[in-house]
Amino acid sequence: MTTFQLVTLPLLAILIVITAVATARSRVTPRIGLGWILLWLSAAIAIAFPDLLVWLAQVLGIGRGTDLVLYVFILVGFVAFFATYLRFRRLDEQMTKIVRHIAIENAAREQDAKPAQDPRAS
């Protein structure tokens, strides 16, 4: 076993345990917890059996295993970036709705309080 494997594999094992415990205690939803565990697990497998990665890369027509990892990483990164962007926009929309609701409710209450000054009578 290489030094790299000696360092990373126990680390990933710890991460899997932490994620599993968090999922069991309902700190995260089961779907998300499972997703992360799968990610840790695939990282551990790729590190433990590097030949597997090389084989997969060659099957897909990519030269080296590290290239495969790089490509997947970039792809996942972009997807995550885009998903975050969409989420950000949705949050923005929701925030506007709240701000609008507060503005309209406050103004309506203010106007109800002094109906004598109704400006519609012109």
């Binding site: 506007t96 701000v99 609008r100 507060i102 503005a103 309209i104």
Partner: peptide, 19 residues
């Protein structure tokens, strides 16, 4: 009408139109 946070001109217009 007061927006408690700055939401942009489009948002302000929609608020005013609704009111």
């Amino acid at each position: 009408l007061r927006h408690v946070l700055n939401r942009g001109q489009g948002a302000a217009l929609q608020t005013g139109i609704e009111y």
